[in-house]
Structures are given as C-alpha cells and as structure tokens.
Nucleic acid binder design. Structure first.
Lengths: 132, 132
DNA sequence: TGTAGTGTACTATTAGTATTAATACACTAT
DNA sequence: ATAGTGTATTAATACTAATAGTACACTACA
C-alpha cells in the first residue's frame, strides 16, 4: 500500500503522509473511501499504532482526510487548499533545493524539465480522465 | 550572503549548504574563490562557528568546496558529480513530494511546469553565457 | 621565530523530534 | 454488551541540531 523506508532520513509518519497524498492524486484512494484503521495500518506496515496515528492526524490537519469518532478515517470528498504566501515560499524552497541537487548531479535544464514533467504526468495519470 | 531562517524546520547547517550550492550555480561564488572563514561566517550569520563548520564539512564531503589546512575553504574548480542510482531515487522522491504539495495547493500541470521552469532559469541565469 | 589567522577535533550541555510502549477513555455499529 | 473505531496521555529511548568552550595543527608572513 505504502512503501516505508525505515532507513530514510524522512520520518516514517511523514512518509505515510506523503504516500497517502500521492496515492490520492494517483486515484489509488478514492474520495470518501475508508482508510485502514490506525491499528490495522500499523499491523500492515509493522509500525507502532502511535506512528500511524500521528500520520493520520497530520493528514486531517491538512484536510486530506476526515475522521469520525468511532467510525474511522476517510479520504476527504472535497478539500479547498489555501494558497497562502508562506506555503508558496516553502514550496519554492523545496523545489529550489531539488533543482540545485539535480543540477549538481549533472542534469541540464532540458533534462531537468523532462524529469519533472514525467513525474507530474505519472502523478496525475489515473485521474486525467475525470472531470471532478 | 545567505538568508538563514532560524524558524525553518530545515536545519541551519543545511540552509548554509543549500545556499552555497545555489550561489555557486548562480555564479555569485566563483570557482577557486575563497569562502569566509568558519569564524568569520559565523559572525556574519550570528551563528556558532561549529554550525558553520558542519556546513563546510558537508560541502566538502559533496566535493563542492575544498579545504586546505591553515589556508581556508575554497569553491571547487572542478567537481564531477556521481550519478548513482541511490541519489537519483532520492532526487525523485524530493521532487515527488514537492509536486504532490504543489498539486494540493491548487497548481495544475501547466502552472507547475511553468513554476519549475522559472526556478530553473533563475538558477542558472548568471552562468548561461559561460562556456565553462 | 613568533604571531595571527586558518581548519580541525573533542567534550559537554540544552533542546527538540521520532519512535516505541502501555494504558485508558469516548464514540459507533451491531 | 461487545468489538472496533479514534483519541489522549505519559513514559522511555534514541537521535539530531545547536551552542559553548577548549585545545591543537597548519599556513602565511613580518
């Protein structure tokens, strides 16, 4: 369901958050769909339930999922991302770091744009037919 | 010289590393040029010298700079980045996370590609005339 | 030779985060 | 009632980031 790399420097809960968001964009998870429970997901990923809970809480904070007491956690049917300046700057910083790394790895401009374009298409691949 | 955001979740030494690499790509720092000494840079950024030292050490590990005992730290004149699979995968993960964030912020494909293209051009702006 | 300016190494301390662990409670469905 | 949910809390361990202070080695240069 989600690939967890315990050797990564990215915290496990953050990997879950990223993986879920990526899966939703790819259409692997459908709006309204129920997520595995905290305990169930923890078993699947052989993690502590608290780690999964932290991820779910962060996903809810970002309005990506909605949790209902006693029922479970569900993919949000609608979410309206707020494009505030802080988030935009943070996004640019993230991209800048990645771009710098890529240029240092030997990518030239065209290759870099091609890489990103490929990743973007891969990301929205399964949703491209929908009208939403 | 380098913008340090002490409130950022990115460690200060990492901000220095990123900022230096970005500055080199932009041509603000020229190959062979001497960097401010550890103590000097620490004063400028009002940081502990050890933090700067950690950044310089990481930059040297990445072959971005060369240090000579008793003389100082210098921008590498030549560096040959190694494009191994691990680094490539790490790069892709970084881009994927940024792309997911961007899509969640409301960017569509075209806007996203445009954003990245803009950042790439901004990055290599000052070097674009050179032949190297 | 001596002095100042370099990088380097080491230890210690403080603070924060990530993860695991265990427990308890509230709510929902049946 | 009972099982399955999410939630909250506390504790412990480990790791990292940053600061602080000290000492040492090397280089340049007068």
């Amino acid at each position: 369901m989600i690939d967890i790399d315990v050797t990564s420097s990215t915290p496990i809960y953050a990997q879950i958050v990223n993986g879920m968001k990526e899966g939703i964009l790819k259409g692997i998870f459908q709006p309204g769909e129920k997520l595995p429970s905290v305990r169930e997901m923890a078993k699947m990923l052989t993690l502590n339930p608290n780690t999964v809970q932290k991820a779910y809480k962060e996903l809810e904070r970002q309005k990506v999922v909605v949790t209902i007491q006693g029922r479970g956690t569900f993919i949000s049917k609608e979410y309206q991302p707020k494009m505030d300046e802080d988030k935009l700057n943070e996004l640019k910083e993230t991209f800048k770091k990645a771009i710098v790394d890529a240029l240092y790895l030997g990518f030239d401009k065209e290759e870099l744009i091609a890489l990103v374009t490929g990743l973007v298409n891969e990301m929205e691949g399964l949703n491209s037919d929908d009208k939403n």
